[in-house]
Simulated assay, not measured.
Amino acid sequence: MPVTLILVGVGIPTSGLLREGRRDPKTMEWIYQPIKDRGRSPNDHAASQHERRFQTVDLDPFRYTAGREMAAWMDHLARLEGHLRLLNDTKGMLTGNDMPEYLFNRTGGVVGVLEKLIQHGCRRAIEDKSERLTKELFNQFTVTPGDMPDLDAESGEQPKIPPHKPTPGKKKPKGRNTVFDDDGPAAAGETGSRR
């Protein structure tokens, strides 16, 4: 029975995952032969059995320079927009006006950074009760490597995050102190005593 597996990872060709190896009995670490070539090879000695069975596909960040690349970015944003769970209508929230270009500049086209930016934005939109993602809202914070603690920076898993200096958000006006307000005279027919 044929099976297709789609696995996602960083640095797969150099990880040793697809190469045959042996375990060092002293250190209990896996030891792999050096890579003689990349990917599939007609040289039976260059690639392991696993390497020949898998096809690796590099997924680079989105680009925003040509028509097809822009269309792919817009399509991705439109699909994300369809999954937003905010009270306001989300149509056009990520794809309208100059928001696609803004989001590309903030994320460099990296899906993981975009995901964190939108997660933080949704959380803030819910907290401030605006229920809307806007540039003004996104400008209030930045995505940092600390937002992706499960990604190893040394192995190249953490993407490059474009720099952004957060701007303070609008402060909500404080409610007026009503402690010393005079309620005025009692209504006609109302007595001072209550039962």
Rank of each mutant, 00 (worst) to 15 (best):
E29C: 10
K165V: 05
G192E: 03
T167P: 09
I31E: 15
L5Y: 09
D152N: 11
R124N: 07
I6R: 02
N97D: 15
W30S: 10
A46H: 01
I35P: 10
T144G: 05
G16L: 11
T65Y: 13
Q49M: 10
K160M: 13
R68F: 06
E190F: 07
E190Y: 05
D183L: 10
G11D: 13
G21A: 03
L80N: 08
E51V: 05
V10D: 14
K171L: 04
D75T: 05
T14P: 14
V111G: 13
F54Q: 07
S155W: 04
F138K: 00
K135P: 12
D128V: 01
E190S: 08
E115I: 03
I31W: 11
R79P: 08
L5P: 07
A46S: 04
A188F: 09
A47N: 11
D44S: 09
N139E: 05
K160H: 12
L17C: 13
G11I: 07
V143L: 00
R132Y: 15
E154G: 07
D128G: 01
N88T: 03
P13N: 14
E51A: 09
M99Q: 10
R124Y: 05
K129I: 00
P2C: 02
D98I: 02
I12R: 12
V113R: 03
S155I: 02
K172R: 00
E157C: 12
E81V: 03
S130M: 06
S155H: 03
G96P: 00
S41E: 15
K36Q: 15
P166Y: 02
G92V: 01
G82P: 04
D44K: 03
K116M: 13
D182M: 03
Y32K: 03
D75N: 10
P185D: 11
F62M: 06
D37Y: 09
K135Q: 14
G189Q: 02
D147T: 01
E51G: 08
V179C: 13
K160I: 09
N105E: 14
S193P: 07
V111I: 15
S155M: 06
N105A: 12
K26M: 07
E81D: 13
H45P: 09
R195A: 07
V143P: 01
E69R: 01
G175Q: 07
G156V: 03
T107L: 02
K26Y: 06
K36S: 12
G9S: 11
T178I: 09
P168R: 05
G121R: 00
P168Y: 06
P162W: 02
N88R: 08
D89F: 10
